[in-house]
Design a protein around this nucleic acid. Structure first.
Lengths: 191, 191
DNA sequence: TCATATAATCTAGCATTGCTAGGATGTCAA
DNA sequence: TTGACATCCTAGCAATGCTAGATTATATGA
């Protein structure tokens, strides 16, 4: 019978509306404005309904973070694909990463700063994260012997640049120069 | 009259006890355990007393962060001084940075992750932060043309490594290899 | 068609948080 | 001793995450 399907579909849609509302409010007013009451009001249901979808508030943040991992993975892959060669690919991925992080600060915050309880051990979230990481690792591989370690270091450099700039600790105007240095460190390791 | 001096000294001591208690609880149980009530109980005064010392809770976190900036500055300078040459200095500073960050995770969290309201524009905090940054910049200068930009990138790489490892996103065992890569990127830029 | 069991949802409230108003208590000079 | 001032505490507010229990809607059987 289609009743059960309709119900579960409506449930999934409502869940998606919760995540979307959380993300929108966070991006517009910051994560501290994302309260359970506010979300309940937004989707026009009472608060306990939210707890039938998510265990707690941080699980909602985690759901937004997973969206972010999925999207940044696509963005990075797309940047790598469009590049003319391996060196350009590193450059394109690096810039795409920073554009993404600083273009969606609240989303990036959910992914890397806020406590999310997603311990990178669950099957689903690991897949999203792994895919994003692989996009980074892919462009680094041609230049380094130990690709896994190099990818981690590359990722760390980009993450550090994003975080320090996002929190106003380094000069915003010099982003291009800093990225160029990091890219040079990766690409120039052999040449 | 020495009465006023005694009073202001006692006040300063009490303030220091607040900061020390906050730091100790955070390092032992995490920052979410650092509540104003808990701190009041710890120093054996009522809550409003805390608000005669600090504007709000985040100002207490900021005070702990300033302590952290002071200490990491000393640690990095000491590491640089003990090193045998400029290349070794970069390596020593990089390892000292990560040891500090991962050895005092709550302190590092106060410095870089938690919202602190210290906008790096106030005279005092700027001095502490600037001193720490200069310790980083100092060891990078011999190897790079644009030292300021290089120092920012170096800092970002170390911060990224610290954060990704602290939050369990990269393998803990490979720290040495990653640091070596970063150091090589700085030192090897000329050689 | 209607009664009933089940599922879905809401109302109301708890405990905890950061923060503050207003009263009580101590302290010091005149 | 008294009055003015500083110091401190009690008590409480509003907001938060979360939940128990009542209430309403929905589907299923006779």
């Amino acid at each position: 019978m289609g009743v059960a399907e309709r119900k579960s579909r409506e449930r999934a849609e409502r869940e998606q509306r919760i995540v979307a509302a959380a993300r929108a409010i966070a991006e517009r007013e910051g994560w501290e404005a994302v309260t359970v009451r506010r979300l309940a009001e937004e989707i026009e249901y009472s608060q306990p309904v939210l707890y039938s979808h998510f265990e707690n508030r941080t699980a909602i943040v985690a759901a937004v973070a997973v969206e972010g991992f999925k999207e940044i993975g696509e963005v990075l892959r797309s940047a790598a694909d469009k590049a003319g060669g391996p060196a350009e690919a590193v450059d394109a991925v690096a810039r795409a990463y920073l554009d993404f992080a600083l273009g969606h600060p609240a989303l990036y915050e959910a992914m890397f700063v806020l406590p999310t309880d997603l311990r990178f051990a669950e099957a689903d979230t690991r897949a999203e994260l792994r895919a994003a990481f692989d996009a980074l690792a892919g462009v680094v591989t041609p230049f380094c012997a130990n690709a896994e370690v190099a990818a981690e270091a590359f990722w760390a450099a980009l993450h550090g640049l994003a975080e320090l700039e996002r929190s106003g600790r380094i000069r915003p105007g010099m982003r291009g120069e800093r990225v160029a240095l990091v890219v040079r460190a990766v690409v120039g390791a052999e040449g």
